[in-house]
Structure formats: structure tokens, C-alpha cells
């Protein structure tokens, strides 16, 4: 694969605090996520999973090393430019969905596009398309408290996908969902990946990590091990 990775972390270190109290949350982590690839990150609490995701999305800056999204280095970028790049290229799915309760599903999904300066009519059209893609065409005009937990999670995913973002960052996106509903969430992410997105998934659930092409195990801020899925079937 010669294509440029959608996300590149090169020898990234993140130290919180300084002096004897300094905590090295990440130590020299290098990781590429290419288009069409789903990578899962696993590790115990405090292993650096969330730091990794925050750095990948430009929500935090590395102490050393470089983070690049779609070939653009985030190092030294002005806050305004960084926010713009995040909105255009990066979609987030959090366990805590952050849906706005006073907006309908479609309004929640179109919001990031409107913030991007897209006209309301076009943003609404895009939002309806992506809601249909995640199987929620029927509930597009309902409010978050009028739909099920699984549906709310899918609205949050639709919001992350809208506007052809190619990098999806997902932090425990299956939250407290039951396993069939959690499987549906992974199926959606997987489908998006197969259509050319790059997905970085943080999870502590082995069953969801197993949907990934590659599972990376973090230990004390370092990549301890990784699986690559063999291309041929096990059987």
C-alpha cells in the first residue's frame, strides 16, 4: 500500500507535568492508519489509550513527535486552522454521546456541517443521507429522548460520518449497549471503513476489537504488541 496514511503518529511522546511528578502518558508511539483500515487500541486503564486518541484528533498536543492528518502536520498549527481541519476531516464518536436534547436527530447530525459554513438546506440533505445510511431514516425528525439508546448511538455515529470525513475516532462507542446493538455499531464503522474511511477505535471489549484489521495493545504508554489479521481465512 503506497497511499499516504489518513492518520500518522510518528514517535509521539506525551508527558503530563514536569520535574519528578512528570507522567509519561505515551512513549514514542508510531502508528499509521490508512484508508480502509480499522485499528483497535486496547490496554488497561492508564495505558495511554485516551491520550492517543486525543492526540490523533488534535485535542491535545504531543510533547515530542508528530501527528499528521491527511498529510497535514498538526504541529505548530494555529488554533483556528486546527479547528477547521478537525471539522473537515475528523469525526468523533464518544461513549458520552453529547447529542443536543433540544435538537432532532437530523438537526444534531447537520450541526457540524452548518458550523463548517455549509448552507442549511444542503447540510440537512447530507444529514438525511447519512441517517438513512445508518438505518435511521424513519426517526430523523425525533428528539434524542424519543429514540432508543442504540438509535441514539447511531445518530452520534451519523454525526461523525457526515460530510465525508475520512478519519473516524471512536472512544468506547459501544458504551453500555447490549451485545447485538454493539455489534451493529461495529458493523456501521466497518462498513464505513470498507468504503474508504480510516477508523481508530479505543475499546476495552475484546469482542469489538476483533472487528479491526489490526489490534494494538498499549502497555504503560508503549505499543506492547499488535495483531495483523491474516488475509486468508483461518479455515
Amino acid at each position: 500500500m503506497s497511499s499516504e496514511p489518513v492518520l500518522r503518529l510518528a514517535d509521539v511522546t506525551r508527558v503530563h507535568g514536569d520535574g519528578p511528578q512528570a507522567v509519561r502518558a505515551l512513549r514514542g508511539v508510531s502508528l499509521d492508519v490508512t484508508a480502509g483500515e480499522l485499528i483497535a487500541v486496547m490496554g488497561p486503564s492508564g495505558s495511554g489509550k485516551s491520550t492517543l486518541l486525543n492526540l490523533a484528533g488534535g485535542l491535545d498536543t504531543p510533547t515530542s513527535g508528530e501527528v499528521a492528518v491527511e498529510g497535514t502536520s498538526l504541529t505548530g498549527m494555529r488554533a483556528g486552522d486546527l479547528a477547521g481541519l478537525r471539522r473537515r476531516h475528523v469525526g468523533y464518536v464518544f461513549q458520552d454521546l453529547n447529542l443536543i436534547p433540544s435538537l432532532t436527530a437530523v438537526e444534531n447530525v447537520m450541526l457540524p456541517r452548518e458550523l463548517d459554513g455549509v448552507r442549511a438546506g444542503q447540510a440537512r440533505g447530507e444529514a438525511r443521507t447519512v441517517l438513512a445510511e445508518v438505518g435511521l431514516a424513519d426517526v430523523a425528525d425525533r428528539f434524542p429522548d424519543e429514540i432508543s439508546g442504540g438509535q441514539r448511538q447511531r445518530v452520534a455515529i451519523a454525526r461523525a460520518l457526515v460530510g465525508q470525513r475520512r478519519l473516524i475516532l471512536a472512544d468506547e462507542p459501544t458504551g453500555a449497549l447490549d451485545t447485538p446493538t454493539g455489534d451493529e455499531v461495529l458493523q456501521l464503522l466497518r462498513t464505513r471503513c470498507d468504503a474508504g474511511a480510516a477508523v481508530l477505535l479505543v475499546t476495552h471489549e475484546p469482542r469489538y476489537a476483533a472487528w479491526a484489521d489490526r489490534v494494538v495493545f498499549l502497555r504503560d504508554g508503549e505499543i506492547a504488541d499488535a495483531t495483523s489479521a491474516p488475509l486468508e481465512s483461518a479455515r
Binding site: R207, A212, T227, A234
Partner: peptide, 11 residues
């Protein structure tokens, strides 16, 4: 075990 799990998920 994770490789096994990945194989099962593909199946």
C-alpha cells in the same frame, strides 16, 4: 486469542 476472535468475527 485476539487473532482467533478476529477470524470468528470475519466468519
Amino acid at each position: 486469542t485476539m487473532r482467533t476472535l478476529q477470524g470468528l468475527t470475519r466468519a
